[in-house]
Amino acid sequence: MAKDLFVTLTDQPGEGARLGEALGNAGVNIEGLCALMEGGTANVHVLVDDVATARAALEGAGIVVQAETDVIVSPALPEPDVDTPGRFGQMARALSDAGINITLVYVASRNRVVLATSDNERATQLLKSMM
């Protein structure tokens, strides 16, 4: 199962390289990535399949994994393509109407949506039923 790892880096040249090289040298593919810079800090979410190897590689490079989150990745959801106008709105509305909160969302490689919610199991069932 894919996991989202959350790390904080310094907002300066080379930090992305340090993260990418640590994972690449360990043979871990970055399936998705989201980074937001604010006040000299980079808050980074990295989607990986091999969590143990990724965590060891990052920590070996001096990058502390602050959180590990179970996520729903859109191939677990039926098509249609998520790259359709209004698709995210439909997904978000269905979750909202069911009282499920989205806690994390970003787009990953191969046009996949990565979601963490207040109830991933119910969210997955609901999203599958609407597709």
Rank of each mutant, 00 (worst) to 15 (best):
A2L: 08
K3F: 06
D4S: 01
L5R: 02
V7F: 06
V7E: 05
V7Y: 07
T10S: 10
Q12T: 11
Q12W: 00
Q12C: 00
P13Q: 14
P13M: 09
E15G: 07
G16W: 09
G16C: 08
A17V: 15
R18T: 06
A22T: 07
A22I: 04
L23H: 13
G24W: 07
G24H: 07
G24M: 07
N25R: 15
A26Y: 13
G27V: 04
V28T: 06
V28Q: 09
E31K: 13
G32R: 00
L33S: 04
C34S: 15
A35I: 12
M37P: 07
G40P: 01
T41M: 12
A42E: 05
A42P: 02
N43H: 15
V44K: 04
H45A: 12
V48F: 10
V48Y: 09
D50R: 11
D50N: 15
A52S: 14
T53D: 10
T53R: 14
A56Q: 15
A57L: 01
A57W: 03
L58Y: 06
L58Q: 04
A61G: 05
A61S: 09
G62E: 08
G62P: 03
G62D: 07
I63H: 09
V64W: 05
V65S: 04
Q66V: 00
E68V: 10
T69L: 11
D70S: 14
V71R: 05
I72T: 00
I72D: 01
I72E: 01
V73P: 00
V73C: 01
V73Q: 02
V73R: 03
P75A: 05
P75K: 03
P75T: 03
P75W: 10
P75G: 03
A76M: 14
P78L: 06
P80S: 13
D81S: 13
T84C: 03
T84R: 14
T84W: 08
P85A: 14
G86P: 01
G86F: 04
G86K: 03
R87D: 00
R87K: 03
G89N: 09
Q90D: 13
Q90L: 12
M91F: 13
A92M: 01
R93H: 03
R93E: 05
A94Q: 09
L95V: 08
L95T: 06
S96D: 13
S96T: 14
S96W: 12
D97K: 09
D97L: 07
G99L: 05
G99A: 09
I100R: 02
N101K: 12
N101P: 11
I102R: 11
T103N: 14
T103F: 05
L104S: 08
L104Q: 08
V105F: 13
V107W: 11
S109W: 12
R110V: 01
N111Q: 14
N111I: 02
N111S: 13
R112M: 04
V113K: 00
V113A: 11
L115R: 02
L115K: 01
A116E: 10
T117L: 06
D119K: 08
N120R: 01
N120T: 05
N120A: 09
E121G: 10
E121W: 00
T124P: 00
Q125G: 12
Q125K: 12
Q125T: 14
L126G: 14
L127P: 06
S129A: 15
M130Q: 15
M131N: 15
